[in-house]
Amino acid sequence: MSCPIYLVMFNEAAAPRFKAVIARKGELKGIFFLCTACSSCVISCPAKVSIDCFKRRAEMVKSGKEPQANRALRENIIRYGNPFGDVAKQKKIKQYYT
């Protein structure tokens, strides 16, 4: 098991195997955003299954099923040019540092 997300969380829901099961069923879930796109899963997988999390994420955004955090990030990028939102000069982004 070489997925860096799984190696931190040790939860099957974060593992590539479960993402592959969900992808095969055609379900769209927030776990596709638990991915660093490192492709360790594809390299390790004996059957060379590719989950293609980016494609799933795009489907989720199009269908309005994306997680709230991702929606906030997108809106901040569009509005402010960065994912964190309106950041005054020299100020820390409070909600991310407390």
């Binding site: 939860n11 099957e12 829901a13 195997r17 479960f18 099961v21 927030g30």
Partner: peptide
Amino acid sequence: QIDLQAYSY
């Protein structure tokens, strides 16, 4: 729900 589903397999 997501964890229960993951551990169903």
